[in-house]
Amino acid sequence: MTVNATPTPGAVPLATEGYKPPKATHKARVLPGFGLSLGITLTYLSLIVVLPLAALLARPWEHGLDGVWQTISDPRVLASLRLTFTTSLLAALVNLFAGLIVAWVLTRYEFPGKGLVDALVDLPFALPTAVAGVSLCSMYAANGWVGSLFAPLGLRIAYTPLGIFVALVFVGLPFIVRSVQPVLAEFDAEVEEAAATLGATPLQTTLRVIVPSLAPALLTGFSLAFARAVGEYGSVIFIAGNMPFVSEITPLLIVIKLEEFDYAGAAAIAVAMLSLAFLSLLLVNALQLLLSRRGRA
């Protein structure tokens, strides 16, 4: 703004020409402690996640790029990666539906023993995975309780990829249930009632109103269950049979390399697995972002 009038004698100008207010060094924040909490977050993540992963990334290169490529492109490794990721994906998908139903039952209905059922869901979290593996194995072996039912049909579960799938379903269930349950519990009853007054049947309300609004929670549970399944070791190795090219999962292959003192080889497989897992999770996160844009923005 320019002022053309000559200033009246004695008038004090409010601000001299060229005056600039002091620059704000940082924006005022509503929540205090941003610097401190971010500092703790970054330090913690560095120590717990980034540092070990960095060490892992540094490890495989002692035989050069060629050596790494040799290890990864080994058909046995490729077969194990394919097995690990497809069974994990299938198990997470099955749990997506089963977990949704379990969460639904636990939030929507009152029945005797509900608390017990609720607690049961967490058991796969608490059980040492090796214990789970052994018990699953004895259940699903050809002479086990469940296995003996399928054996006459020519269907073998234990010691096949199907067994791996069963173990991964077992360890993945709590993730879906626990991500969906709180969202479902807090679902606004009036929204459901609105759907009913508009003429929707209970099934339509469920499929068109409730489940779509659970999508973000379902996706979170799905990605957690999937990530857990990819990394699962203890419960799988007992039931898998561990036949190379058929039922050998990648984590087992890594352990085998370690036992052969081939640390670089183990690290190379681990890096391949890590990249694939990271890519999948990135994909899920992108989808999540898309979903949350739609709902909130």
């Binding site: 009036e190 609105a194 049947t201």
Partner: peptide, 29 residues
């Protein structure tokens, strides 16, 4: 039942379907 009465109800909280657009909300019934 509520769905056979053809009663238009507007809730205090509006109870809109968050994952649907305005047009989809209106078309729902």
């Amino acid at each position: 039942s509520a769905r056979d009465r053809r009663v238009g109800m507007v809730f205090q909280s509006y109870a809109l379907f968050r994952h649907m657009t305005v047009a989809q909300n209106i078309a729902f019934g």
